[in-house]
Amino acid sequence: MMVPMARDLAIDLGTANTLVYMKGRGIVLNEPSVIALNRQTGEVLATGREAWQMIGRTPGYIVAVRPLRGGAITDFEITERMIRLLLQRVGVSRFTRPKVVICVPSAITEVERRAVTDAARRAGAADANLIEQPMAAAIGADLPIDEPVGNMVIDIGGGTSETAVISLGGIVALEAVRVGSFDIDAAIQNYVRREHGIAIGERTAEEIKVAIGSADPTPDENQAEVRGRDLMTGLPKTVILTPEEVRYAIEDVVSSIVASVIRCLSKAPPELSQDFLVRGMYLVGGGGLLRGLAERIERETEVPVKMSNVPLEAVVLGAGHVIEHYEALKGMFMGARR
């Protein structure tokens, strides 16, 4: 297999998925942010999709983990190893050290910022800069952020939900909560455990969310058969879950996301607020694919909500655009002069 020459890269280091954009080529990698390790030797056994398939199905000596939670690095060493492997897979070596732009949640702390840039530099990047996810999402979703008009983007990821108002290339108002689609999965897991007395894994909870989960009632609703382990007997058991039950289970998480959107709207200057009524708000991120969520936000805010054409790729495409126009757009990096 021919290993490509390393070019500058944009990385969407998400809690759920990692996407890599290579300058001049486009998206070259899109995989779950999971790494499988040998617990005894610390050796990396698998990353990405292969490691994701191992979650909850490994023998005692293997552990499949997501090194990011809530958009932040929870295990610096493992994250660094994951980034190193990702960069190797797209052709980075000690002789081809690219510039890297990494998308991070805007609410990231100074310590977390340093952890991400250090991890990228140690993994082989010549220079690592950070860009806020909502800004990258707005660029990638093709919103007219070069104009003096109010653009609102809602980015619902695996561990964070961020809403930003952007005008003339800068963030005007921002609201972020460390709640995302993984919290929806966890809420489903807890509900099934509490109400039906069976334990299910995080992958099963995610499958339930995708199959029958919704934030608002939808026209075609079906029940789902859920298989897990009976907490009393320890035996496999099947229960039926209804869409109403799932909505009830995830209500707290959904309300928290909707409340953060409302807070962001209330922070926006009045001149830009009126633009939202005409232009609407744009939903991006995997969490935004939850059925009925756009309708729910629209109902509670009375502002039209539109789904981006590229909800899963918007963030990395935006960061990719920054890498393509590095000199002109380097003022958009976190910590750069605005």
Binding site: G26, V28, W52, G157, S181, E206
Partner: peptide
Amino acid sequence: RSTDDDGANGT
């Protein structure tokens, strides 16, 4: 680019 759907739809 990997194009398979892995089911993990959060980002």
